[in-house]
Design a binder for these strands. Structure first.
Lengths: 151, 151
DNA sequence: TCAAAGGGGACCTTTTGGGTCCGGATTGCA
DNA sequence: TGCAATCCGGACCCAAAAGGTCCCCTTTGA
């Protein structure tokens, strides 16, 4: 249903905890602090480290450290780190040979502006805006939300 | 990976075909015209009919008819019709009792502005913009697209 | 030298998306 | 009046991906 993976959700929670505590935190410590199972937290942190959002420090007294303040980390970066590149359809930017109805498909390549719009929207939101519990009251729903049939 | 279902893709193709041909089209006819398997097309059309985007005419000489021009149908409507409501996370607008770490989770309810932003972006794009093959050249990438690591 | 921690996989389980099929209801046409 | 075409609403099944766990190796401070 057009949703991000749970890992993205976890990542935001873990990042939030990392910034709240400050300094170097261990994976088990973050697990108990967030209530997420430890192996899962470890996996999330590994992925975040590979994307350069956190830094892993090995050895005894090691742990993970935030590399950038969450106010400068766009939500899209976290999503890309956890879920891979943001593309709403399988036909991304004109790949060939994958779609059998390639010659008849009138939609080829036309999803690009849609992807761009989504990326833009997610790049405008910083992780700190959804992570900080006692944060400044953000103007909720800056974008006009049309009235959908709430299923 | 933050993508819509194939059904949404199919729906856009079918709607496009429906508008291109005009009048009443049968499900088998649309299937052969689009290259999509017939049962799948039928399923897509059923869902579109339930959402009021097309109308099903029963009996012999029946078929499906477009109810509104695609230029007035927002892409978000199609996505909602096929994939259900647009909500990036499971915790939608403060549901209770589902998340075990409910009391410790610092992110509760804070995804709402994100959802709103996505909805807004998808509501601004009309189906005709991605459906029509010889359409007017739309200003691609109206939103600044940050440079991601293309995986 | 040892223990605490991250690194990088392989592996398994569950969910769900994607697709097919069937019987029933409706309606135009011969 | 019967028949055939067509939509309607499910149930059902399969495969792929997500979600989660575990193991062993490397690194490093005490």
């Amino acid at each position: 249903m057009l949703r991000v993976s749970k890992f993205t959700d976890y990542a935001v929670v873990v990042l939030s905890r990392l910034e709240a505590e400050g300094g170097v935190q261990t994976a088990p410590g973050l697990a108990s602090g967030t209530g997420i199972a430890e192996p899962t937290v470890a996996k999330v942190l590994k992925m975040l480290a590979q994307s350069g959002l956190v830094e892993g420090l090995r050895g005894a007294r090691g742990g993970y450290r935030l590399l950038r303040p969450l106010a400068s980390v766009a939500l899209s970066e976290v999503i890309v780190a956890m879920d891979g590149p943001i593309a709403l359809t399988a036909c991304v930017d004109g790949g060939f040979g994958l779609c059998e109805a390639e010659h008849t498909c009138p939609v080829r390549g036309r999803w690009d502006p849609v992807n761009a719009a989504i990326r833009g929207a997610l790049s405008a939101i910083m992780v700190s805006e959804i992570a900080s519990p006692p944060a400044a009251p953000r103007t909720a729903a800056a974008t006009p939300m049309p009235a959908y049939a709430a299923e």
